[in-house]
Design a protein around this nucleic acid. Sequence first.
DNA 1: GTGAAAGCGCTAACAT
DNA 2: ATGTTAGCGCTTTCAC
Lengths: 351, 351
Amino acid sequence: MAHRQDQQRRASIHDVASRAGVSAATVSKVMAGVATVKPENAQRVFDAIEQLGYRVDPLASDMRRAKRRIIGAIMPEFESEFFGQMVTQLESLAEQRGYTLVAASSRESEARETEILARMHDWRVAGVVLAPVRNEHGPAAAFMKANGMTGVLIDRVLSDDAFDTVSADSAAASAEVARELIGKGHRHILAVGLGEQAATVRTRLDGFRTTALNLAPDVRIDVVLAESHVEPLRAQLRDYFAEGERPTAVYSLFLKGTLVALSEFRRRGWHCPNDISLVGFDDAEWMQVTWPAIAAVVQPVRQIAGHAMEALFARIEGEEGPPTARLEPCRVFMRESVGSPGNGPHSAKPQ
Amino acid sequence: MAHRQDQQRRASIHDVASRAGVSAATVSKVMAGVATVKPENAQRVFDAIEQLGYRVDPLASDMRRAKRRIIGAIMPEFESEFFGQMVTQLESLAEQRGYTLVAASSRESEARETEILARMHDWRVAGVVLAPVRNEHGPAAAFMKANGMTGVLIDRVLSDDAFDTVSADSAAASAEVARELIGKGHRHILAVGLGEQAATVRTRLDGFRTTALNLAPDVRIDVVLAESHVEPLRAQLRDYFAEGERPTAVYSLFLKGTLVALSEFRRRGWHCPNDISLVGFDDAEWMQVTWPAIAAVVQPVRQIAGHAMEALFARIEGEEGPPTARLEPCRVFMRESVGSPGNGPHSAKPQ
DNA sequence: GTGAAAGCGCTAACAT
DNA sequence: ATGTTAGCGCTTTCAC
């Protein structure tokens, strides 16, 4: 008794049928809520279900139906707040519609991304929410296209000719960051990013640069962009500072970049905002409790998830029409890590 | 062509069979690697598979087999690094064995936990990795027991009479934290935790208290334990400090507690480690880049995931024997947020 | 060596 | 209003 794990055979629809004295088809109808069943029989079925603890096997049920009530979600990683919240939201929205979400992590690899997609295709999922590693032009989206899969692209995407896309309005947020920094008097700013995430990082950089140059044509914007991994970026950043470059502010175009920038500041003994200002794209819980609190762009996770699922289910239900490309507005939180340049040490110390 | 999403019917095993001029049974055998197939026929089958791009439907396949090659994972949340890494690991280990991981978030709710479990039971998953919201005595574990499900319990558990358990060795890690703090001269320490996570928080507290009292019988250990939610904890902590309590160090028994402590320090203008020291259970990436870096207990995620899956698959493959209870050793990183009491301002400033 | 037959648990026509 | 039939796509005896 202690560690029995006997998988006792569960009651099937036939068990219910025979116990209720009807056919399996009738049981199925009762469960589907079809009105044309004699109330008396319906009651017997309900009783039998109750007594046997019967529950439909969703896989067997899907097997027979045309489409499976499964949604696949592919995220670049699960370790960050952003994607963690995203999966939580998507799961919740899928459940609300009676679907099960099966999430997988591509671990920032396009090869793995395609493998997962192939597996989801094998599973014959009804639809896929793909947050591609790089952008909408990768092999994964191509695979979806080639196989006529239904899907939505989110996050590191702009727009696509085959799939609906939903992402944060990076350009607008970056423009706002530019306005803030220029407004505070910064004229030498470093932008830090990872090139591989082309779709978003490019947009963020362009949105920032355009607005900054527009407001202050004399502003100098340096860019440190690593190809694809964080460690090379760290090295490049170190070299950049080692050469004596001394921007008054850093705009990190993605979360890990903010961490890297912060650790390079540490190494050099620079404090925010007195020695240098810092704003990052992507917020995290810790950013408001550290000292100084780190300024950040907050992505609208719920909106992205919500509109992605809306678009996806519309397509699943057969909606026609050209793909849509949604941009959800971000919020920018200018916290203590941003100050005015040249204010010298301690001038901007929190009270 | 732009937005075609025509779900073209995929090749079935019969399509392959007729193209190769054999029966479906033979195709199945070839795919299973059965040796008793004439090489010539096997080749024809392979060719047909290739030409049709045939892939087995894993769900249909599982339908026929006894057990489905699906592992369910239930985590209290997806938003933290710890559980994010855990899911990533579990997914990877499941895949290595040809299983698919279906992860779900209980969102810190025991009610939801049981619902998810029921759904996974409906799915007839081969096994479940459950990280219970509270501990091993909750309704979810009871459900698993009652239904003869195969499973492993991880994280917020100690040991169970029905399931194997794997968790971090909280007591040992807490003892080490105690040694460090007592060694540095702290004699008034506040421990902060959430009561609902009883299994782990209790252990951490006891391990800490026992060792601390043993080393310094005169030490004063205060405890602020909230029932179940973070916000009440914040309020209690605020009250505690408002009453004039002034411990020289805080040991947070879980991640959110560290955040809450930090934000209360902020509110009062206290800096670590000069005004107060801080160590938290659970590490996070940001803790090493902020100033000061936050001392933390690092949980061995990979080991926990690894041993959990090992135990689970052993049971799935029919291993008998009493449940095992593993404790995986943690590492304690004493970073700059911990100093000696009474060193006054700036005495412990990083170089 | 290979294939026919049976069926996993369910649902959707089609009869009745 | 209900039951019968025919599968969904696959695997597995069990004959041949």
